[in-house]
């Protein structure tokens, strides 16, 4: 056994290897289907990471996170379609809009002491309110949908993100890895420690001099801002947006499955969750197709069962026990629920 003595170093090596595999495999295997699955996987890993920042580290349950995806997507798409402003500038506007929405929701909720389940309902209410509002917003296509033009005027494909799927794959890979490193850096800073203090015991955190309101608000705003680029990528990858999809509650729930399965409050959990769930969902779809079974809803049923089983039997997720098995310490691995 060549057990490296330093788990942190081992973790860096393994993560580097993991990132390298993700970066290199499409060069060898040029398969459109696999690339599309991998895009979905990385997308869920990224939004899961952003959601986990708020729920996993600061302990604030948001069930309306699709709001920030939708706002990001519509902002960048509107700038592109109506004003000809490309996504590389649009993404900053998208981040600003989502951060503002996060500040409003967090500000209202935390200022008035809306906690736990009530806060979760507040996030749902805002997302649903926005969904119905966008259904009636004709400037952005309303319920009939908002479409991005496919052609572009000769510029480089990456300038306006009018390129092949592989372009989006690498974009998402950079975004996912960047988010991981950013979250790792933030939770090692005083803010990250304040988040976890508030998560564990809000009253005790307040008593020890932490400004609970600002600490929670920072989590809500950061989480919202970091979710928005996923919306921009989604808009330019699919080229169409519908309020009923962009802001749907079931989207919010799909977004939180990966971090819950992987491990709430861990850094690698959201990525692992997406790596497990996306291929599982695809396998299920393919299996049903092969058996010529047409049952809409079966996949969601399986996800539902999985959610119940994980929450009941493995509340800390798959990653913490796996990390122990590998002899690794996730910088943020939390102790199992009290």
């Amino acid at each position: 056994m060549m057990a490296a003595p330093d788990p942190a170093r081992r973790g860096r090596l393994l993560f580097g290897g993991f990132a390298l595999v993700l970066a290199v495999w499409p060069l060898g295997i040029d398969d459109a289907y696999l690339v599309s699955v991998a895009i979905t996987m990385l997308w869920f890993a990224a939004v899961g990471q952003a959601w986990n920042l708020m729920m996993g580290f600061a302990g604030q349950l948001s069930l309306g996170h699709t709001l920030y995806v939708g706002l990001g997507a519509y902002t960048a798409a509107a700038l592109y379609v109506h004003f000809g402003i490309g996504p590389w500038i649009g993404v900053w506007a998208a981040v600003a809009v989502a951060a503002a929405a996060g500040a409003v929701i967090g500000g209202l909720g935390f200022r008035f002491g809306v906690r736990g389940v009530y806060f979760a309902l507040l996030t749902i209410a805002f997302a649903e309110f926005t969904r119905i509002g966008f259904d009636h917003l004709d400037w952005l296509g309303g319920s009939a949908g908002f479409f991005l033009p496919l052609d572009h005027d000769g510029a480089l494909p990456w300038a306006d993100l009018r390129g092949p799927p592989l372009l989006f794959y690498y974009l998402l890979l950079a975004y996912t890895l960047g988010l991981f490193l950013l979250c790792r850096a933030v939770i090692a800073r005083p803010l990250g420690y304040r988040w976890r203090a508030v998560r564990e015991d809000q009253e005790a955190a307040a008593a020890s001099g932490i400004n609970v309101f600002r600490t929670k608000l920072a989590a809500a705003v950061m989480s919202a801002a970091l979710t928005a680029p996923a919306g921009v990528i989604q808009a330019f990858y699919y080229n169409n947006l519908f309020p009923d999809q962009a802001f749907a509650m079931h989207r919010s729930i799909e977004m939180i499955l990966a971090p819950i399965v992987g491990g709430i409050g861990t850094l690698f959990g959201p990525i692992l969750g997406a790596v497990v769930l996306t291929p599982l969902g695809e396998a299920l779809t393919l299996g049903l197709e092969a058996l010529a079974i047409d049952l809409p809803g079966l996949k969601q049923t399986v996800y539902g069962v999985l959610l119940v089983v994980i929450v009941l039997r493995l509340p800390s997720g798959v990653w913490p026990p796996l990390a122990r098995r590998l002899g690794l310490g996730d910088a943020a691995t939390r102790t199992p629920d009290r």
């Binding site: 302990g59 809409p296 079966l298 539902g304 959610l307 629920d337």
Partner: peptide, 30 residues
């Protein structure tokens, strides 16, 4: 199911019942 959730942290209760809701709704759909 629900018995195990009594007294559990709120977010666990909520998420488990979100799972139940998904199963029931999609079960009805099927």
């Amino acid at each position: 199911l629900v018995r195990e959730l009594i007294g559990a942290p709120e977010h666990r209760q909520f998420l488990a019942l979100v799972g139940v809701a998904m199963v029931v709704m999609n079960g009805l759909l099927m």
